[in-house]
Design a binder for these strands. Structure first.
Length: 447
RNA sequence: GACCCCAUCGUCUAGCCUGGUCUAGGACUCGAGCUUUUCAAGCUCGCAACACGGGUUCGAAUCCCGUUGGGGUCGCCA
């Protein structure tokens, strides 16, 4: 049975890079009917926070990455200490104060990485260094090898030790993690040797860089999964985007579901080079998923945003929201876009774009607007076909081009010169609101 | 600095393992056009890459070496 794990440390939110690591682990597990284990690495009691832990679990669940088992390292300290004691008893480790250290001996270590192939190290290079990274020389003028700390002075176990003990005890067969862990690998292998356990297979994923090619950080944009959620991204879009960073389903396919992806997934096909995160492409994928999403679901996702913005209260009209969503579905990159573009559906005191005002409402349209209001008030039924017919008849009577009136009316009704078809918009607003806004517009013009 | 990893359009990538079918394919972005009441969508077209230098070979994006560039690690953090 193949067993993999994702082992986040709850010292921060689930990062986009962490999410991708979790995703690849999950996809690999599913692709071979293996198990995906979640292990919270909270050995640093100072920095680990319950809120981060909850956020990580939450984000993973939101992305659809479910786990088979959940462990907390903070509850396994006795286990780690027990294994340290065993190494002590066997004479493989030694004590220094309360700390337990493993003696590092010079040796070449070869790791066969599933993504990169063979990587070799020489523990002779693992020497004691000062703050500047310069080797510290002993009396003979040689830098001594740095022994591996297993248990700290305060009795708490060190990451590399916990990691190895857990991976061994949990029967992890494949360690799939970020490239930043490559240099931990030989040290961990030394611990496996001491423990007398065969190391698992390793696969080191390339890192995700920011758009400029630098390190992905909060400064260069949202880096936490929960931020993307708040910004109106759909989980399937984020997951799809993340899997495309370093892997491709083949056949020039861009959009792919998790279910379809696990059928095509293979560790061997993962790229070696780091990938830069592109918000543009994520947005494009998101717009594609929004477009094909079920309107009911989109409405459910948008309602909290509308409430937060105070655009709707508890007694909202769900049908109206669904109608608006249908109209804007093809015009959104993120759910947040809806709030801006469809604001006029929910509020009367929407901002009028100054440029649109200047361009389309600077001429006096009082006569046209009044006539249109009168015709609209008699229009029955008040649907797109009828309102368009009424509108076009009036325009013809007045000897105008349709566009001469279309744009001013749109600006009067929505405050914008862009948006869905005018007649669909009019129907969405309803007869009463349409007429009210037309009247308000020419009154405003007078004043 | 030492050690390790990496290198195809601006970005994500296909191709590389198993050299020829690659005048290097797709996607995002950008530009043009069509369509159109605006925007978006859609459709069509376009710009744009094998980092460099040596080998190996009849032949290299594909294999080898070097250079350059980028990244990672160097904590009794994880």
């Amino acid at each position: 049975m193949i067993k993999v794990r994702f082992a986040p440390s709850p010292t921060g939110f689930l990062h986009i890079g962490g999410a991708r690591t979790a995703l690849f682990n999950w996809m690999y597990a599913k692709s071979v009917q293996g198990e995906f284990i979640l292990r919270i690495e909270d050995t640093d009691r100072q920095r680990s926070k319950k809120e981060y832990e909850e956020e990580i679990l939450d984000s993973l669940a939101w992305l659809g990455l479910d786990w088979d088992e959940l462990y907390y390292q903070s509850r396994r300290f006795d286990l780690y200490r027990g294994h340290a004691q065993k190494l002590l008893d066997e004479g493989k480790a030694y004590k220094e104060g309360e700390a337990v250290l493993l003696k590092m001996i010079p040796q070449g270590i070869k790791v066969y990485d599933l993504i990169r192939g063979e990587i070799s190290f020489d523990t002779s290079n693992f020497v004691v260094c000062d703050d500047k990274g310069e080797p510290v020389l002993d009396k003979d003028g040689k830098p001594p090898l740095k022994d591996e700390v297993l248990i700290k002075d305060d009795g708490s176990p060190v990451y590399n030790f916990c990691c190895v003990v857990d991976d061994a005890l949990m029967g992890i067969t494949h360690v799939i993690r970020g490239e930043d862990h490559i240099s931990n690998t030989p040290r961990q292998i030394v611990i496996y040797q001491a423990l007398g356990v065969k190391p698992p297979k390793f696969a080191h994923l390339p890192l995700i860089m920011d758009e400029g090619g630098g390190r992905l950080s909060k400064r260069t944009g949202a880096a936490a999964v929960s931020d993307y959620r708040k910004q109106g991204f759909l989980p399937e879009a984020l997951v799809n985007y993340l899997m495309l960073l370093g892997w491709a389903p083949g056949d020039n396919q861009e959009m792919i579901s998790l279910a379809a992806a696990i059928k095509k997934f293979s560790i061997k096909k993962i790229n070696k080079a780091a990938a830069a995160f592109s918000l543009d492409k994520l947005k494009w994928l998101n717009s594609q998923y929004i477009r094909q999403a079920d309107t009911e679901r989109l409405a459910d996702l948008i309602i909290p945003f509308l409430k937060e913005k105070k655009y709707i209260q508890e007694d909202f009209d769900r049908q109206k929201i669904k109608n608006s969503v249908d109209l804007f579905k093809r015009r959104m990159d993120t759910l947040l876009d809806f709030l801006q573009r469809a604001d006029f559906v929910f509020i009367d005191d929407f901002q009028i774009d100054p440029q649109a005002l200047e361009e389309h409402l600077s001429k006096n349209r009082e006569k046209e607007f009044r006539l249109l209001s009168e015709r609209f008030s008699k229009a029955e039924p008040f649907d797109a076909a009828t309102t368009e017919k009424v509108f076009r008849e009036l325009v013809t009577e007045l000897g105008m081009e349709a566009s001469e009136l279309v744009h001013p009316v749109r600006v009067a009704l929505t405050g914008k010169d862009i948006g869905p078809g005018l007649f669909e918009t009019i129907v969405l607003l309803g007869k009463e609101k349409t007429i009210e806004r037309l009247k308000k517009a020419f009154k405003a013009e007078k004043g």
